[in-house]
């Protein structure tokens, strides 16, 4: 029982990332009818927002202290980050919390980027065949990730979580297991809660605002909404921006769990596609449910007990599930009837 609880927990953070990316993919596909192969790149760009914020905050002033000598007899260098000299204690805290702080940067950045992407490129492809949409966004994904590689290099750049969240949480005690059996890194729990909060925000935005209502109506029947005199294009641009923000935030907060490198986007994209397909193309609830489901299943498959029976199952379980779902129930777990069902 403890082991099961632990594996469920293990799957939650990854599942959260899958769910957030898949949510954005589904929103874009549902509203704009475009399959966005560059969505993984947006996730990666969000992660690199966190990297840049950390890098900016830790810019250091180097002063030489003539009173102290190093082992080589030269004056010792004292490195103090500028934020600490300028803001003192607050600066140090800022540096410590660089990952959460980067959210504040990531939101406007990703929004601008998403809107620019939709206005500058995607909108010319609404009427073109799906194959060309796939190809052009695929090209964009390569371009984005190579630019990041050019700037930040090819190696993963580790990002520390804030000090308070670096430790482990004994989650077992909270739900009544023996102490020490279900311990879990605090940041991953935070990530899970964060992803749930974002998902909740997106859902309530779509459900309870009139903007969201128009978007949902547009997903159901774009033409009719247009006939009612609503400028659906402008709303969809903003929707694309929101989807980009969701992916970016997912990436920024994920950095302490997985050190970001330039190809993390594509690794997640393939899996997120699978998530969308399993959840049901065009179903937001399905994307979220399938994201968490596949995350948890993947963590179960990587248990040693399972791997001993079926070696390598952890590498392929997600794809296997996708194949089974597509063959048995092509519209996905919660897909609408007739949606891409051919």
């Amino acid at each position: 029982m403890d082991a099961i609880a632990l594996q469920v927990l293990n799957g939650l953070d990854k599942g959260g990332a899958y769910a957030l990316i898949a949510l954005g993919l589904t929103i874009i596909f549902g509203t704009l009818g475009v399959v966005n192969f560059a969505h993984g790149a947006l996730f990666m760009l969000g992660a690199f927002c966190a990297v840049s914020v950390k890098a900016l905050l830790s810019l250091e002033a180097v002063t030489l202290d003539p009173n102290k000598l190093t082992a080589w007899g030269t004056p010792m260098e004292i490195r103090v980050p500028y934020v600490e000299t300028w803001f003192g204690e607050f600066g140090a805290t800022l540096l410590n919390y660089s990952v959460p702080v980067s959210i504040l940067v990531a939101i406007p950045m990703m929004l601008i980027l998403g809107i620019a992407m939709e206005r500058g490129l995607i909108r010319f492809f609404y009427k073109r065949p799906h194959a060309e949409q796939i190809l052009v966004t695929f090209g964009l994904a390569i371009v984005l990730q190579e630019i990041i590689k050019g700037i930040f290099g090819a190696n993963p750049i580790p990002q520390p979580a804030p000090e308070v969240a670096k430790g482990m949480i004994d989650f077992g005690i909270l739900v009544g297991f023996d102490a020490g059996n279900v311990v879990y890194p605090a940041w991953r729990l935070i990530y899970f809660l964060f992803s749930v909060a974002i998902i909740g925000a997106v859902f309530s935005f779509l459900r309870f605002t009139s903007f969201g209502m128009v978007v949902r109506a547009g997903m159901a029947d774009r033409e009719t909404v247009g006939l009612l005199g609503i400028d659906i294009d402008r709303r969809f641009t903003i929707v694309f921006g929101i989807a980009a923000v969701v992916a970016g935030l997912a990436g920024a907060m994920y950095t302490p769990i997985l050190s970001p490198d330039y190809h993390m986007g594509m690794d997640f994209l393939v899996l997120s596609f699978v998530v969308v397909v399993v959840g049901g193309m065009g179903s937001l609830g399905g994307a979220v449910a399938a994201g968490f489901l596949l995350g948890i299943l993947q963590s179960f498959a990587s248990m040693n007990e399972v791997k001993n029976i079926l070696p390598g199952i952890d590498q392929i379980i997600i794809y296997l599930i996708a194949v089974v779902v597509l063959l048995v129930r092509p519209r996905g777990l919660m897909g609408r009837k007739g949606m891409m069902e051919h």
């Binding site: 399959v35 799906h130 194959a131 796939i134 393939v270 596609f273 699978v274 397909v277 193309m281 590498q315 392929i316 794809y319 296997l320 996708a322 194949v323 597509l326 063959l327 092509p330 891409m340 051919h342």
Partner: peptide, 18 residues
């Protein structure tokens, strides 16, 4: 080939990745 369009592309991508 049970699927067409986007589904087909995603399926082949998934198989190759697998």
């Amino acid at each position: 080939l049970r699927r067409t369009g986007i589904y087909f592309s995603i399926l082949t991508l998934a198989f190759a990745q697998m």
